[in-house]
Design a protein around this nucleic acid. Structure first.
Lengths: 346, 346
DNA sequence: TTGAAAGCGCTAACAT
DNA sequence: ATGTTAGCGCTTTCAA
């Protein structure tokens, strides 16, 4: 067996900072400074070090770096699911933003379950992430306690509560839902049904229901329990929910859906029921993912700033992590997208 | 400033293994053994240690653990994009499998670009991942060299080449495409067009084109350059490609698409052209993602074992990482799913 | 501008 | 079964 004290005894062993220092004829401190552009190093020295590092194929050992610097240059994000394109796209934007600053992203999913989310927060913290991104703002105090105990930077995406004690980067779910409902009412619809995601642990879904309710109330209408169905965010669930609404004695002339996937399900239900959209009934989605224009008729929906949220989350977090100053919250605009699935009421 | 030698001088400082050892009245080695269930520890001792750890809210420091053990319990996966549900789902399955063994997943995307993929491989290796998952088997030797230089376990998903020097977990793209084409021919179609993803750096896309070609050849037909359009995997690109095929003097009676997203685009093109599917033309997809049944008519397609690939990738990798023995390759079956978008030729 | 050296927190070999 | 202790590779004072 090779003598441990003999340098480069094992050729398979990855080169370490000492190997680089030796080859460059400098100290390990100088190598570290050169490669991290921290502290001053003469340009000529840096060149020499870089050459040596390249020659050896040196990559800093992650564990050593993390241990010594107490930073991992890693950010963790927990989203409900990767299967909804809206989150996938936001995550992609986040990752690209972080990558520009040599920070990598650890992604975990909660399946919309608070207990899983909290477990994932624990995992990420154990992984030593330097920052965390979460979706929504409603969760158990214990979850926030975990984050706060470490004093770790974290931002909440997808909602924009008025006086949050946390940094939020999102949009006004209530307002967007209120707005779209108003537009539907302007088309003459009066019997309106809604298919929502499960609101229990989902403030976005909850706020959207509230926005619809309020808009109806503003017009002297109301969203009765019969007109509202909650279900999982899946095509099949949306279809079933729509079937239920369509089975009512007075079926709605317009169905507002918590997202585009549910709306696609509602379209399928309409077709199965022999109803034509929008002539017999209108269907409205939320998110404006690609699916919205893949179905027929294309879905009227609300464009959610997923990409901008992802980018902003990355920028805010980086600022916070590096400069140590807590960034402000940010509210982004949404836009109603009118398409053929919304027609005038007959 | 607090004296560094005074233990727990800074109450904000995270508790370390020494704090736990002190509280439990044992050595740090025993704490490590208790918490990692490595080596023997008396049950009573373990209890005491666990209590102490819980009381202090102790979480092992990731950097320290990684540095000392030379393992990060992290696996990295590089997929083309998170925006295609097929990859998202496979990744989800992979993550769940790994999570059962306390291994976390680092996800990166390549956007179907070989250079980006190689850069991501570098990043993951720098991150000290213990294993890697890649999609497809065709890439530059330099990419494989990176992996091999570290002797790190890695598996390739989505394809099943006959004599790969690597561990692959996938399915027979050629065979699946050959099979679906044969079924289309059985429906009487003779003028067949194909919309494929870009085949240059994508062995799956390439193999599918070959499978279609071969099946046609088997019936004395051929896939001429005019009948084949390559484009990005997007709805819009699929629509444009279909438009091109439909503009031919003799338009195809069936269009085979490289995936379901392209097929959804083709459906849109058919509608825009005033053609009814499947009466005027058939459209066939690949993947069987949710989108396939969200569109109308629902897409005939090939069911790809995305979930099984994700699970198997996790299991094989874990086995390899822990037991050190390289697992065998695995070929999973696909299934043709007949749906309304495929009709008999008129 | 550079070097020497003290840790960072943990694991694992070895000793008991 | 448990303790002692030597590193793992890196960053960061502190000196020079």
């Amino acid at each position: 067996m090779a003598d441990k004290r003999t340098p480069s005894a094992d050729p398979r062993r990855a080169p370490n900072i000492e190997d680089v220092a030796r080859l460059a004829g400098v100290s390990t401190a100088t190598v570290s400074r050169s490669l991290n552009s921290s502290g001053r190093v003469r340009e000529a020295t840096r060149k020499i070090v870089e050459t040596a590092a390249r020659e050896l194929g040196y990559t800093p050992n992650f564990g050593g770096q993390a241990l010594a610097s107490n930073r991992t240059n890693t950010v963790g994000a927990i989203i409900p699911t990767m299967e909804n394109a809206i989150f996938a796209r936001a995550i992609q934007a986040l990752q690209e933003t972080l990558a520009e600053h040599k920070v990598t992203l650890l992604v975990a999913t909660s399946q919309y379950r608070p207990d899983r989310e909290e477990a994932q927060i624990r995992t990420l913290l154990a992984r030593g992430v330097d920052g965390v991104v979460l979706i929504g703002n409603r969760r158990a105090p214990s979850a926030y306690a975990l984050l706060n105990a470490r004093g770790i930077p974290f931002v909440l995406l997808w909602s924009a509560p008025a006086n949050s004690p946390f940094v939020t980067i999102g949009f006004d779910n209530f307002g967007a839902a209120h707005d779209l409902t108003t537009r539907i009412l302007e088309k003459g619809h009066r019997r309106i049904g809604m298919i929502s995601g499960l609101t229990a642990d989902n403030d976005r879904a909850f706020d959207r229901v509230q926005g619809v309710s309020q808009a109806l109330a503003d017009h002297g209408l109301s969203l009765s329990p019969h007109d509202l169905v909650e279900c999982r965010y899946s095509l099949k669930a949306g279809e079933n929910a729509a079937m239920q609404l369509l089975g009512a004695t007075q079926r709605p002339t317009a169905i507002i859906c918590g997202n585009d996937v549910l709306a696609a399900g509602a379209l399928r239900a309409a077709r199965a029921s022999g109803l034509t959209v929008p002539d017999d009934m209108s269907v409205i989605g939320f998110d404006d993912i690609e699916l919205a224009t893949a179905v027929f008729p294309p879905l009227a929906t609300v464009r959610v700033p997923h990409r901008r949220m992802g980018v902003a989350a990355g920028e805010h977090l980086l600022r916070w992590m590096v400069q140590g100053e807590r960034p402000p919250s940010l509210t982004l605009p949404t836009e109603f997208v009118e398409r053929a699935s919304l027609g005038v009421a007959k």
